Simulated scan of single mutants.
Amino acid sequence: MARECIEKYLAEHTSKYIGKYRCHSSVQTKKFEHKFRYYILDSQFRDINVFLTIDYSGEEIIPTFSVELHEQEQEYIIKDALNKIIYDSHYKTILHCHIIAHFIETHQKETLLEPLDYRNILDYLEYHNGTNQETVDQFYSFLMPYLNRLIYNKNYKKFMDSITLLLDKILYEYEWDGTTAKYLDTQYQYHLYYFREIIRIVYANLDKFYKETKEQLLEAIWRLCKLQRFAFAIMTDFGSLVLSHYHITLDIFHYINKRAKDEHYQSIVLPYMEAIFNSDDEAFKDACKDVIRFVMNDMLTFANHDLQIAIGNSIVLDVGYQLLIDLFSQDYNTFVFVCFPISTFPEEYRCTIKKELEKAIRFYAARMEHDEYRLTSFEQVANINRLLMENYREDYRSE
């Protein structure tokens, strides 16, 4: 009856409208009742929460909102919530909604639950305590012992089910518009440390995972590749996993390339790993340049970009500062030295950078003779002059 009720509502309320609110978390309060927390960020990047109680015990869906929204937005939220309920119904659960609080409070690590139960614990914690590092740390105090027990019991299917459900929860990136900049809303940064640990567990048992859960494993790797910021933030361990077994690596590349082609998706992750796998130095440098371009774009677009700075710095430390100079020589984009200030370069690169800047200013000065390039060239000339004066003032005085 409950599923029929949900499917009936979804069939009767079809719309192409995409709502503004995004699901934060949910808890089940009765057998056929869920509470959902949805939110948006305002122009100052402050949370605005809306709570939905949805009863699907009868013949009709009974939704109750904490605040009134316009009809289309309410319908979008209801349908999104119902689809989540249907999706979760495909997984077994043994932790009753009435005892989840007691289970968390007593911290019964020795009790083995089902994969969905652990995802529900994360939802419960976030619903009541918000999304923060403390909440995530508490969640993993339940999940990590469970995953280790699954490895001990050789239950690789439930392990991958747990990871799939976790990825469903945390793999998102929402862009919110502010007054002067955008905000990239993510949750996965709180999970970086633990995902490295999870990847190491899979790495140590990769042949077994590949044999018993091949499709789930490949799908999880593809999903990580699609969230490029997340993938590069865990690249040391993620890359080791992907590149560790020759024949498995070939299958992974084949799967990712096929999915990328089918979905018309351009990834900077795959060329980076393929270049390492093929020991192709030139392709690797080109892939690293694409990563730096990606990082620079984020730094110029989003108000919050600490993770991207860390990714860019790790690439530079790995490949060397010459990469940034080569990138500037190729693109003549002064934002290279805005995002990676000249003052942070080792002393031996200063002279080379100065020569490249002077070459670039001559290039843009020549382009200013053409009307279609005049404004952009003038901006670049001004930027280069500023960089030269800020970093080489004493050199010009001595000349």
Rank of each mutant, 00 (worst) to 15 (best):
Y210W: 12
Y210P: 01
Y210L: 03
Y210C: 02
K211A: 13
E212D: 08
E212K: 09
K214S: 03
K214W: 04
K214R: 13
K214N: 05
E215S: 13
E215Y: 15
E215D: 14
Q216H: 08
Q216L: 10
L217D: 01
L217S: 02
L217W: 03
L218M: 11
L218T: 10
L218H: 11
L218R: 08
E219P: 08
E219I: 06
I221M: 05
I221G: 04
W222K: 07
R223N: 10
R223I: 05
R223Y: 12
L224N: 09
L224P: 00
C225M: 14
K226H: 09
K226M: 08
K226C: 11
L227G: 00
L227S: 09
L227N: 11
Q228C: 02
Q228R: 00
R229K: 10
R229W: 10
F230E: 02
A231W: 10
A231F: 11
F232I: 03
F232P: 02
F232Y: 12
F232V: 02
A233L: 12
A233C: 04
A233I: 04
I234N: 01
I234T: 06
M235P: 03
M235V: 10
M235E: 10
T236K: 10
T236A: 05
T236N: 09
D237C: 01
D237Q: 04
F238Q: 00
G239L: 02
S240V: 00
S240M: 02
L241W: 08
V242N: 06
V242R: 01
L243N: 09
L243Q: 06
L243H: 10
L243F: 11
L243E: 06
S244R: 02
S244G: 05
H245E: 12
H245M: 03
H245L: 05
H245V: 08
Y246Q: 07
Y246G: 01
H247N: 14
H247K: 12
H247C: 04
I248T: 10
T249F: 04
L250N: 12
L250E: 14
D251H: 11
D251V: 09
I252M: 09
F253G: 08
F253Y: 13
F253V: 11
H254N: 14
H254S: 15
Y255V: 04
Y255E: 09
Y255C: 06
Y255H: 13
I256Y: 11
I256K: 06
N257D: 15
N257V: 10
K258W: 14
K258S: 14
K258Y: 15
K258R: 14
R259F: 11
R259H: 10
R259A: 12
A260Y: 08
A260T: 08
K261Y: 14
K261Q: 15
D262V: 05
D262L: 12
D262T: 03
E263K: 06
E263W: 00
Y265Q: 11
Q266T: 13
Q266S: 13
Q266F: 13
